[in-house]
Amino acid sequence: MKKQEYLDLYHQMVLIRRLEECAAELYQQDKIGGFLHLYIGQEAVSTGLISARQPQDRVITAYRDHGVAINTGIGAKEVIAELLGKATGTSKGKGGSMHMADVEKNFWGGHAIVGAHLPLAAGMALGDQYMGSDAATICMFGDGATNIGFFHEALNLSKVWNLPVLWVVENNQYGMGTSVARASAVGEIRQKADGYSIPNAIADGMDVLSVRKAAVKALKHVRSGKGPFFLEFTTYRYRGHSMGDPERYREKEEIAQWEQTDPIGIYQRYLIAEKIATRAELEEIEMQAEAEIMEAVEFAETSPEPAPEELYTDVYVQAG
């Protein structure tokens, strides 16, 4: 890896962290409505993962999608504009926090029905296989989503049809307030892939370099025509499931414990210890991210609301 690549990973994670902190504030100011699921704590997963993709690779995820959107190359401007429901947002203000997408960046969306996007991912991988493309489909989802039928149907199909799809579970220990132990028959989610004979691996989702390494390997497998691969990343969300979560299901000490391995903190220490970057260089990146977010908020706040006629557009491709 070149120095700039290391720095880019740092930039992405810091940018996402700032963006999410800013989103929480905008929510408190009542500028964001609906549900808001923050990605704070999980930044390393999509950052490491998507840094390993090639442009032809598709990405699809669940509703906890702001960080994923940023990593696919969507600007903080478009993300925040969508959060504010503005016409300049990723989905013209029609989707909101849970439904961001940019097809040109090969980001096929945040999807809010738990597990429902997994069969879609299988279908996209089928499309690429059908047309003889070497693209892989990267499908991200939470631990909770592995208990719903969609998951099992999609994994099975991907193996039966040898589809080029990389299944990625972000195991952040909880689906809303229900721990993996209380909801899943197996503690390591990747064991479920064994049930479908899908090769799999587990890696530390708090360590962006481990994530990247695992992703590079997995994508190589998928791209070489060997069929699906399954990756589990161990991670943690520091904030509630969504804004307003009473968090009765976990202790403060547990959060504090996981904060010791804050993905940004450990990566920062690593970069300095390995003399890849100086503290000053990292601070510069942090300031730059801060400025990017300020500019994005300014952009979003001054962007127009969608016109009332927009209510009736996009219902069909061919209206009438």
Binding site: G33, S91, G93, K94, G96, P306, E310, L311, V315
Partner: peptide
């Protein structure tokens, strides 16, 4: 309700 999937934007949603 207006015959559209409901949008996120507050004004549009209320309109529907």
């Amino acid at each position: 309700q207006a015959e559209v999937p409901l949008p996120y934007n507050r004004n549009l949603e209320q309109l529907a």
